[in-house]
Nucleic acid binder design. Structure first.
Lengths: 181, 181, 181, 181
DNA sequence: CATGAATGAGCCTTCATTCAT
DNA sequence: AATGAATGAAGGCTCATTCAT
């Protein structure tokens, strides 16, 4: 899986062949098939693997006793920082997003669990009347997704985001999800 | 190009073969090559084609004499509506985003021009002190991107968004880009 | 046919497509098929065409009243010179030789006739006891073929042949076909 | 390579497809690509392979202590005989000649070495004043090339060469390269 | 368990030939 | 007679997957 991730990051989704993965991993082609059903399975498992790393990175340094705004801020910046990780889980984000995804219930419950800290943040915020009474998924799209989106554009050079703009974008996201009289 | 678009929407970027395109279009394989240099060229041209349709759909029923909020609202809902278009430009959005893109200056100027109404909206808003003084690109990510993102999730069934939620999301996006005392 | 010859000389046997020929000739693709049965026929006819030009070039400035040696010498040098012709019949020689050839009797009789001056030279030489009593075809291989072979190698740079060597080679060919007590 | 050689001999350079080679060799198409980079590489390697067989056949039964004329005679007849080899290296000669050739120095040195016996023959002959003082390459064209050329024509039926004629042609070639008073 | 040679369907692209205009 | 768009078989090559060792 490490090999696959590296190749995906370096060469993109095309040009990912099982023989390349095998060579990079230092094993024979056939060996892969003892641990993964087929290519699709490898990609699925990689998705899960990366997703849990992403979840870990997003929620690191966040504890449930921090103030809500503080938690949001930390997560938002964690997402931003993820793009610069040397050990590249998200550099792949571009690629990662279109990894084939299972759409099973199990999968959704897994994601639910991985991002429970995020959900807790949103639930508490709504309970306090601080956040808008929207579905967590929607709050996520409004409040956190833009961080990933901007980071990606920043990284690919489509758009330069300086520190001040980044801070303003963070605040704007907060504005999006909080109640305004 | 219509055939390509359909196949892209149905089967995704991978598994798009020239043979399939030809069959779907009801022509012989070789015929494609009379109108497109190669597969890459077909994809590039398709990108341009869709982009201009997207621009047209996003900005339809928007005129520069409408109030700012009204313009924003119309665009946001246009984006939302795009996902339901029978003749599917955005169903592909998921796929569309990773169509190979030329990154020439020309291309960027073209995009600039196609979305000039959007840019004008943002510029006026900033001039009036109504909108936050951020780069248009950033405002776009904060204010409009979530519409596409939610519509996509709604359509794929990952998330159900009722009319009230949609309205709330729209307002939240407006909150994100406007100044607050 | 002129177009075909040019393309053959420039790009070789591969990369000779009917559409290229048409474009070079300034006509539509289909037009070719009004004048030639198919590609093979075009090539056959081109072969004949070039062969007659070759015959003309080989035997130019040769008349039956010249001394035998003089005639031989002229032909040998004509062959050598052919390689340098601007209007390229033989530059193609490399390519020309593996143009598809019909092997009919007619064809052989045609060639017989085209090179009648050569045959007359050999017949007279044998009658006078000056040349070896061998089949004309064999005399041709021994006496004239080497000129083409050397010129080709000289032209492709495989081998440098200066004027003195060329003269010596000519004499050696004469030695090959003449009687030696 | 054996399959390629056979197909080349039977159907010529054009009309040699990797699929055909695979079928003839009794393997799958893809298998070829485990042993050869691509078609060009296959042809290059085949060229080398055949060339070394040709060199071996041309110089077999020739040792440096044999009289010069004897050596020449043996080689000349070896070349002639090559055309009749069941296991067909030279039947291809026609085709063989226009196999794509690398033109590297290495290649030339290899050829030099393969045919060193021929070069030695010519060098000794010139040293003794028996042969004309010409470049070895030229002597080769004058003295040995005609053997291949005649054999080829004989084999394709263009020309019938009986034993006596063959002997005379051999002598004529000797006349071509030797000094005369 | 691990190997890696072998497989063969499938991909992109070319091009000789046809035929409605 | 000329056109040139359309055809579709075939070509070179890749790669997910299998299986005998």
């Amino acid at each position: 899986m490490r090999a696959t991730e590296k190749l995906l990051a370096d060469y993109g989704f095309h040009g990912l062949s099982m023989q390349m993965v095998a060579r990079e991993a230092g094993v024979a082609t056939g060996t892969i098939y003892r641990y993964f059903e087929d290519k699709q399975d490898l990609l699925h498992q990689l998705y899960d693997h990366i997703l849990s790393r992403v979840a870990q990175l997003v929620t690191q340094n966040v504890t449930d006793d921090m103030p809500l705004k503080e938690r949001f801020r930390t997560m938002w910046l964690n997402i931003w920082a993820m793009a610069y990780q040397e050990d590249a889980p998200l550099i792949n984000r571009g690629q990662f997003e279109n990894l084939p995804r299972r759409n099973t219930l199990e999968q959704q419950q897994l994601e639910q669990k991985l991002f429970s800290k995020v959900h807790r943040l949103f639930e508490e915020g709504k309970a306090q009347g601080l956040l808008k009474p929207l579905d967590n998924e929607i709050l996520s799209v409004l409040g956190l997704e833009p961080s990933a989106c901007l980071a990606r554009k920043h990284l690919t050079g489509v758009l330069h985001v300086d520190e001040k703009s980044r801070e303003a974008a963070l605040e704007a996201c907060w504005d999006a999800i909080t109640q305004h009289d």
